[in-house]
């Protein structure tokens, strides 16, 4: 398996990358980050750009910091974390800050692919490729993250739903736009549960859950599923059943049971390993597991069933 021929350009900075994309526009250039979606696509002919722009050496795109640290200057504070687009999964897992404040993301990252792939793949590449069954789209959607991008028309911030096309629209990234960072709001009560596809390693079904609570009552719930449809999707029936309810196992169980309500098995992805019907069937189990992890973290938070929404 050899990739087709292409030109390779290494960008030294974000501006340089944007300029290279512009200059080689006729070659249908693609951005190369960790390469773990793009190189497989080149090898099997799913993509055949005539130029690659490697952003792998742009240090400004790598790293994890408080939102306020980051040069873009958007108003943000200690209640979110900015993750550079080129930050690898391994770096995400090493971040205590993310482990504490965005466990939905670190949970999902910890079961993503394998050790070697986690050393190479990047959050920006994962969300842009958004392969069916990828783990981070579900986690960032549930986390209500924001994706910041730069392109020929300047900089903009896109919410995860629009970026991923989870709201029914087409994914929002335009040609020759570069993802620069992902901002994840802090919510301690989050969790992710995955049924790994035995052949691909992606999620056969993966569910990410984030709960905001006030004194033992759920005030907001975001539950997102991957692997079931081509794109990541919010499980509205589960969310509706959760909001206003107490944080208790029986609420969680009853809410999770409704996970398959809004997805027709005929619309669900299907292969030799799992039919659409089976995938929809699995949703409730994995929704429950993800919610249980989130609830455990509510309990571990500010005492008893205390608040988990905006700790600190």
């Amino acid at each position: 398996m050899f990739p087709p021929q292409f030109d390779y350009h290494r960008a030294s900075s974000i501006d340089d990358a944007l300029e290279l994309l512009e200059r080689h526009a006729a070659d249908d250039p693609r951005i190369l980050a960790g390469g773990h979606s793009l190189l497989p696509d080149l090898k099997n002919g799913r993509a055949s750009p005539r130029a690659l722009v490697d952003i792998g050496e742009i240090d400004a795109l790598r790293g994890i910091g408080s939102g306020a640290d980051v040069e873009s200057g958007a108003d943000s504070g200690a209640d979110e974390t900015a993750i550079g687009a080129l930050t690898t999964y391994a770096d995400i897992l090493e971040s205590d800050r993310l482990q504490r404040h965005a466990p939905v993301l670190t949970d999902a990252t910890s079961v993503l692919a394998d050790l070697q792939i986690r050393n190479r793949g990047t959050i920006g590449g994962n969300l842009t490729a958004a392969e069916p069954g990828a783990d981070l789209p579900a986690a960032t959607l549930a986390a209500d993250a924001t994706v910041r991008v730069r392109g020929p028309d300047g900089e903009r911030a896109i919410d995860a739903a629009a970026f991923l096309g989870a709201d029914g629209s087409e994914p929002a990234l335009r040609e020759r736009e570069l993802v620069t960072e992902v901002r994840v709001p802090h919510v301690e009560a989050g969790g992710y549960a995955k049924k790994t596809h035995p052949a691909s390693g992606y999620a056969m079904v993966g569910v990410a859950a984030v709960l905001e609570t006030d004194d033992g009552t759920i005030t907001d719930a975001r539950v997102a599923a991957t692997g079931v449809l081509e794109r990541v999707v919010r499980l509205a029936a589960v969310e509706d059943a959760l909001v206003g309810a107490r944080v208790e196992s029986k609420t969680i169980e009853a809410a999770a049971e409704r996970a398959g309500e809004t997805i027709e098995p005929a619309d669900a992805r299907s292969d030799d390993h799992a039919s659409g019907e089976f995938r929809v069937h699995l949703l409730s189990t994995y929704a429950e597991r993800a919610l249980e992890r989130a609830v455990d973290r509510v309990a571990a938070g500010a005492g008893g069933t205390g608040t988990a929404g905006d700790l600190e």
């Binding site: 390469g35 190189l39 490697d54 070697q116 050393n119």
Partner: peptide
């Protein structure tokens, strides 16, 4: 310093 799969890295990288 990182274990990686060398079939999924370009030499030029």
């Amino acid at each position: 310093g990182d274990a990686v799969k060398s079939c999924t890295v370009l030499a030029v990288q």
